[in-house]
Each structure stands twice: as C-alpha cells, then as structure tokens.
Design a protein around this nucleic acid. Structure first.
Length: 781
DNA sequence: GATTGCGCGATTTTT
DNA sequence: TCGCGCAATC
C-alpha cells in the first residue's frame, strides 16, 4: 500500500482510489476534504497520470497554493507545479490570455475589478444621457453580473420577458441597453470583468471547436472544489471540458452553499448525478475538526433547513466545552468583551493570537473589534474590506503599468492622464472621450494624434508630453523586466517622490504601499518560472492579470501571530482554535435583506453553520442589545438562530456572570421590536432574559457611551384599542401617546426622511429618542 | 483648473 | 459616522 493512503478513513480512501469516471464527494465540514483532494491528485500522478493533464479548480488562490504544496510534499517531487490548479477565474484568465486572439481580444487584456466595472458603467450611463440617480452603478452592475453568470448576453437579456418586466417594474427599463453598451465598451477597452473571465471562456469553447478539443483532450482529469458554490457558467464550462473523458470529480457540501448572490446554485450539485451515467457518490461524514459540542450545535441548527442532502456529521473528538453565549450592551462592549476574553485565554490557556478568529456578517462590524484590540495591545489583521490593490496610490501606479501594456484601456488612461497633475483637465479629457467615440477609435489614439483634433497649444503640448512618456516606458519594456519599468514609472512620474515628501502618517503609509507594490513586482519577476510549459510567463501583462484576482486572504501568513478578523464568507474553508461569532442579532444576522424568502433565510442559516463549524476547540457567540448604525444607536433583538441551538450545549450563565465587562443598564426596556405585532419589545426582552439569562448589570465603565444609560422605565398601559397614527403626519409640538412610554410631546424630528428619529419628552419616562418607523405612536393633538 | 467645504446617502456577503 | 459628489472660490 502506498504510504500516502495510510491515515485515510474508509470513505476518504474510496474517494482517492476511485479515479475513473464521474465522482461526487459530499464532504461535511471538517471532514478532511482538502486531504482527500490532494491525496487523490497525488494518487493519480503516482499511477502515471501526467500532471499536465490534471485540472483542479478551487475557490480561492490560497486553497490552490496549499493544495499544490501538499501534493509536492506527498510526492516528494516538484512535478506538482505542472498541474493546472487555481481558481476558476485565474485558470481561465490564463487560458484566455493564450487564446485571446480567437475571440478578438488582445492577449494583454485588462481585468477590471468590481470598482472599475462600476466606473465603466457610470461613464456609459452618462454617455447615454440616462439619469445617474436612477441607474446606480452597483445596481446596474449586479443585474449585468447576474445575467452573465446565467449565460445571458445583452440580446438575450433584452429578449427575456421576465427580466424586462422586473426592470420595468423597478423603473429601470434601459438596463438591457446599458448592458450592451457596457459590454461593447469593455471590448473596446480590451478589458474583461470578473464575470467575463467565465463567460468568454464559455464562448471560446462553444465557438471554437479546435480550442474545445484541445482542452478536452488536455484535461483528462478534472477536479472541482466547493462545487456547491458554482454558478451556471462554471457548470457549463466544466461540463464541456469533461465531456470526452468524463473523469470529473466534484467535491462539495450543500450545507455550506453561501454564494447564491453571486449566481451560485445548489442545483448544480443536485444535478450532477443526473448528468452522467454511473455517478459514484461518496459521503465524508466524520468530522476531524471540532469538538462534539460544537458539531452538535451546528448539526442542530442546520437541521432546520428543508432543502438538503441527507447526511450525518459525527466526530470522535472529545466533548469539549459548552458554547459560550454572550450578551453585551453595545457593539463597543462586544468589542471590549472579545478583546478581554482573548487576553484572558492567552494567559490562562497559553493560546497565541493566531488561534483566534473574530467572524462577522458584514465588514462594517470590524470597527469595534479593531479599536478594542488595539487598546489592549493585541496584534490583529483585518481580512477583506479595502484590499491592498484597491488603494488609491497602488491603483495609480498600476494604472500606468496597465496603459503601458494595453493602450486600449480607457479606464487606466483616465486615471493617470492627469495624475500627478500635468494640466490635462476635465474638459480636455471629456473632449478626448467624445472624439474617440465620434471617430470610433480608442481614447489613447486621440491623445496620441492630438494634433489632428485642434487642441490649444498648451494642452497639445501636455498631451504630447504624456504620450512621449508612455512610449518611453513601452520601449523600455522591450529590453527591461517588469520591475525595472515599474521603478522608472515611479521615478519619472514623480509619484514616489511626492509620496516620500508627504510626511503625514497616511502619506508615509502610502509611500510604503507603493514600495510594497514594487517589491511584489520584483518578487514576481524573479521567482522561478512555473514550468507549465505553455504559458510560463513573467511579463508585466501576465503580472497585471494575476494580481487583479488576488484577495488578501490569499496571502499565506500562517506564521504571523495575529488575531484574524473577517467576514464569515471570507472564513470559508478555514479553521481556528477559538472562534468568536459576533453580532448575532436580527436584521444583522440574518441580514434584514435576506429574510423575505425561505431560500434567503436558509442561506443565512448555512452561513451561520459555516461560522460555527470554523471552530476547533472553543466557540463564543455574542450579540449586543444595541449598536451604532448610520451613526445612530439602534436596538436589535437576539437572532432567531440563537433559539435553534440546544440549550443544554450553551453556557448562558457566562452572559450574566461576566457582566463586569458589559453595560447597557436596563436597555432592554427600550428596545423596539421590528416584527412583533404589538410594536414594542418589552415582551421580547423578558423572553430574552428567560432564555439568555438576566440582562447584564451596569457597573459604570468608562468605555460605555452615555447614550446607553437610559432612565428607568415607568410602564404604561395604553387605554382602549391603541391605533398607531401615520408617521408622516407627525411634527414637533404634537402631543402623542406611546404604547409603552405613555404620553409625551415631540420636541423635534431629525434623521433622514426614511428613518426619522423623534426626540420625545415623556411625562413619566423623560426624554427619549424614538425611531418612528419602529415605534407605534398615536397623535393626541 | 485645482482646492475646499458642505450636504446627502449608505451597509450584505466576493472572485 | 464616513466617504463621496458637487458647488463655490481663488
């Protein structure tokens, strides 16, 4: 028996050894999925399959890198570097770069990230003379993105009556036209967005038989990780590629499907068994990651979902500690609690920073934890949010490199043509764009031939100087490597010098970022070619294409000792000794946007499942009575998911006994229910108190914000049938009755019109700020 | 043509 | 609260 087969359980081994024909591995959380995948590839190679003939598609670059490394270790050989392994996006980008001319693109095509796509949409909407307020870039982009992921071009979009009706109803009938213009503009710019990397790959295979045959033949063995998160384009592409050999192995867990907003559909994993004859299905149900308590909680919660493949996840691991449930007064208290607990755990149980992860639903929640960790002197890193490559100074530098490599790229040109300022202003740029559109040439072409378009002498000179500089960089690129050119760009444009002279903290940071960028280019240039025989390519163009697809979770920083903060989405596939799942409140988790259909809610629940199953040893789940949103303190109920966890597995006394780090006073009494029919939350508070222990006592801690201290409530019982009045009728000066606080006078109304906040002086309960949308008030006079 | 300041709208999740 | 877009000003 091969050495690498030892240490696999029966099912894992069966999955590894089943190499011929379609295979579906249903892999529960923590069931050794990566191990199976890597061992399976090693096994193929050990049995004579050429690495060049194996395609493995993963969800993140990090997963790909990790797999590659593990295979090398298993086989004690560098052959693994010949594997085609990476994310859908990066693998297809590589292939498209090679095949670009077949579909009319330059091989140096630019890849637009989401920001750039939106920016192009914005220009297109402007140029079409449409109302920008109405056709907001992110809304339009989402529509287009969904269409692309569903294999729909502009024409099909226009012909689709369901989509047309939706757009008409939303009063956005021009989306199909914008889509067409956007696609045309991207093409003209020699650019693809993220979705194009999939869509164009599909089109390539569909329209070019020789390309289809080539890759069908090349990829004799195909493996796809996280299959539950693939979307229709990805599904169609892999189906095409696998059609000849049918050696396709998909790995997934329907319980962890969390990307439907990106077009992913569980249908793919359910459909797989029908697509091929004789599909072998193997279930990996033993969990090696978590304690029994953690796993039991996770199983119980996910059991509330109706749509799922039957499986039972179990573990041999020890029972472990109870799951600790924590209620805090505010989001700041929550941050403080987590930082305190980390400090305590490090001292008591000798954990390192890197053993901890703080997982939240939205990026905006990171702030409170950032502050508290910084105050406690605990090293941390936030993943997600603004990535390195999205920073302005980095984008500016990259803008130059992009226009050097691809002169069609109008986005890049507009970004750098007057940065640093060189007297080419808005009007000039607008003129260039108009001339370009009129003559159907690229904007760069207009700039290059500025003399033909009647610019004023000064402007003309500025434009000419600019193109001379770009041309200088281009010729330089012929004889120098990417790094040298990048350094020259920094010098010649004065970008580096300007940042260097900026001695503010931010300026220093920006300078360092540019230096880091240069280092990364250097590293790329000098690292050994990856031996893939066909496209081992160290050109600047290749560099630019790859970095757009990088996220900061991809950077392997295992040995850096920091607490990790990230969204639950970003945490998929990762595991940590100690996990804090925070902000587990209604409207936040589940998100208010995702509680309208069963499908949406079930996805939120799967997300919760993913969060909980990241933990190996210890799990804390926290929620706050109130938190700042839009700069206002708002109250939330505890999440419904908390009710779905079996109480005997929860340590709820912790919430009450650790009140030393929590505040909020009697803030329960003032929380407003969003959905309980009677419009106030005191019942919820009582229920919550029963369920999760008594509300934390206030101990006057300095970090508590004043607004959490709310005067004691004097209860009020409304007279007769209480009928709430229309919010829009309310004005300052009105006398009102509140269901719980009793009679009062509206002092003022502020806040936005869709979220008005009234300051009301109550007879018995003092002055309070009331959110009119949630509270029910009756106008007396 | 660049800089500053004010007012308004925004929060899901990401390759 | 924060960041962005727009308008006013030099």
């Amino acid at each position: 028996m091969h050495e690498y087969l030892r240490g696999l359980n029966e099912q894992q081994r069966a999955a590894v050894e089943h190499t011929k024909g379609p295979l579906m591995i249903v892999a529960g959380a923590g069931s050794g999925k990566t191990k199976v995948l890597t061992t399976r590839i090693a096994h193929l190679m050990a049995n004579g399959v050429d690495a060049f003939n194996i395609l493995a598609l993963t969800f993140t670059n990090k997963a790909a890198a990790e797999m590659k490394e593990r295979i090398e270790r298993t086989l004690q050989s560098t052959e693994a570097r010949n594997l085609y392994i990476g994310t859908f996006h990066s693998v297809f980008a590589k292939i498209l770069r090679y095949e670009a001319s077949k579909i009319g693109y330059p091989s140096n095509f630019t890849i637009y990230d989401t920001d750039e796509s939106r920016s192009v949409i914005k220009t297109v909407v402007q140029e079409m003379g449409l109302d920008e307020k109405h056709y907001k870039p992110n809304i339009v982009h989402n529509r287009i993105s969904s269409a692309k992921n569903a294999l729909m071009g502009p024409m099909q979009y226009l012909m689709d009556s369901a989509l047309q009706q939706e757009d008409a109803r939303a009063n956005r009938p021009a989306i199909a036209k914008i889509y067409a213009a956007y696609a045309a503009r991207c093409f003209k710019n020699g650019a693809m967005d993220f979705d194009d990397l999939l869509l164009k790959m599909y089109e390539l295979l569909k329209t070019h038989n020789e390309a289809l045959h080539k890759y069908q033949h090349k990829f004799k063995y195909i493996m796809i990780d996280e299959y539950q998160d693939t979307n229709p384009v990805q599904y169609e592409i892999t189906k095409l590629l696998a059609a000849v050999h049918e050696n396709i192995c998909v790995v997934g867990d329907d319980a962890q499907s969390i990307y439907s907003f990106r077009g992913a559909t569980i249908e793919n994993i359910l459909q797989f068994q029908k697509d091929y004859d004789d599909v072998k299905v193997i279930k990996l149900e033993q969990n090696y990651r978590s304690t029994q308590n953690i796993l039991n909680v996770a199983n119980k919660v996910i059991g509330n979902n109706k749509n799922q493949l039957p499986k039972v996840l179990w573990t041999d691991n020890e029972t472990g500690e109870l799951i600790k449930l924590i209620r805090t007064g505010t989001d700041n208290d929550e941050g403080k609690f987590v930082a305190d607990t980390i400090k305590e755990q490090k001292l008591r149980n000798h954990y390192y920073n890197k053993d901890f992860a703080i997982l939240y639903r939205t990026n905006a929640q990171s702030r409170a934890f950032e502050e508290s960790l910084r105050r406690m002197g605990i090293a941390y890193k936030i993943y997600g949010g603004l990535s390195f490559y999205q920073r302005k100074e980095v984008k500016d530098m990259l803008g130059y490199l992009r226009i050097i490599v691809n002169q069609q790229d109008e986005e890049a040109l507009k970004r750098v043509i007057n940065f640093p300022a060189r007297g080419i202003g808005k009007t000039t740029i607008e003129k260039c764009v108009i001339y370009a559109n009129e003559h159907n040439i690229t904007m760069y072409e207009v700039v290059k031939r500025a003399g033909e378009f009647g610019f004023k002498a000064g402007t003309l000179e500025a434009l000419n100087n600019f193109t001379t500089m770009i041309r200088y960089f281009q010729t330089m690129l012929e004889t120098n490597n990417a790094y040298d050119v990048a350094v020259q760009v920094g010098k010649h444009t004065n970008i580096v010098k300007e940042l260097f002279n900026d001695k503010t903290t931010e300026g220093l940071q920006r300078y360092e970022n540019v230096q880091e960028l240069l280092n990364s280019i250097k590293e790329w240039t000098e690292s050994p070619s990856n031996d893939d025989g066909e496209q081992g390519d160290k050109s600047l163009g290749s560099y630019l294409q790859q970095i757009t697809l990088l996220t900061d979770t991809d950077k392997d920083e295992e040995n850096v000792d920091v607490v990790k903060l990230m969204t639950i989405h970003a945490a998929k596939g990762l595991e940590f000794g100690c996990v804090f799942v925070v902000g587990v409140e209604e409207t936040l988790f589940p998100s208010a946007m995702s509680i309208n259909t069963r499908e949406e809610l079930e996805e939120e629940r799967r997300l919760y499942y993913v969060a909980v199953t990241r933990a190996k040893d210890k799990l804390w789940i926290s929620f706050a009575n109130s938190r700042y949103r839009f700069g206002q303190l708002v109250q939330n109920e505890p999440s419904r998911f908390l009710d779905e966890m079996p109480k005997e597995l929860l340590d709820m006394t912790h919430a009450a006994s650790s009140s030393r780090m929590m505040g909020g006073g009697n803030s329960f009494g003032s929380s407003f229910s969003r959905n309980s029919g009677n419009g106030f939350a005191i019942n919820d508070a009582e229920q919550a108190a029963k369920k999760y222990g008594p509300p934390p006592e206030k101990k006057g801690l300095s970090y508590l914000t004043k607004s959490t201290a709310i005067p004691k409530l004097t209860a009020h019982t409304p007279s007769g049938n209480f009928e709430a009045s229309d919010v829009s009728d309310m004005e300052a000066g009105h006398k009102i009755e509140h269901q719980k606080f009793g009679f009062g006078i509206i002092m003022k109304i502020e806040g936005s019109s869709h979220n008005p906040i009234a300051t009301i002086e109550f007879e018995l309960n003092g002055e309070r700020k009331i959110m009119l949308n949630y509270a029910k008030l009756r106008i007396i006079k």
